[in-house]
Amino acid sequence: MNTELLYIEDDREIGTFVVQHLRSSGYEVKWLRSGEQAVEQAEGCKLVILDVMLPGLDGFTVGQRLKKAMPGLPILMLSARTAIDDKLQGLQFADDYVTKPFHPDELTARIEVLLRRSGNHAPEALQVKHLLVHERENRIVNGETGEEILLSGKQFHIFNYLLRHLGQIMTKEQIYESVWGEPYLEGDKTLMVHIRYLREKIEKDPAAPAIIETVRGIGYRVRA
């Protein structure tokens, strides 16, 4: 069974199109025209796409209720209002935010990121170049040789962090602070050393890394 999403949108034209797009991307979609039944209907869904401007209960109220009832359920806010004020108010409970008009591909990309981050991703292994990553079991297998790759704690956390932000460039500060849980001050060398060891384990040619890409001057990225 496909991953089920709850979509709350009052505009019929946008709703029709988004539902169509999401279904063609392989998701089950439950579409509500108002937020009244949101909490009941969210049962069994892996993610909620929530429009801000709704008749009756507004999106912020619905979002807060959902978050209270199901704290682990990722919420993606979708808004046609100005980005500035809503962004601050919305992001207090929302996990991500997309402003209308959005590119449909951006929407699906954000959904994938959110699902992966919350652990509600597809059960099959994620393929990154020659690696098969079984995220559920925290297992990485070399798809060509079938050998399991064992990572140290920090290496695993770094790799996992980059995988959760697949396709995004993460700065050294972001990686360090997420993995070590402390402010990045002189973490530069530490992080570089760990990335070097990580590459030695997962890359075919650590001197020319294909999986963990260095983005000069910014940070690192794992491309899908």
């Binding site: 505009d11 946008i14 209002r81 590119h103």
Partner: peptide, 16 residues
């Protein structure tokens, strides 16, 4: 903002 963006979103969707 809402009134301007909603049709734009629909347009964007149809272009896609």
């Amino acid at each position: 903002s809402h009134d301007l963006r909603t049709p734009l979103t629909v347009m964007r969707g149809h272009l896609y």
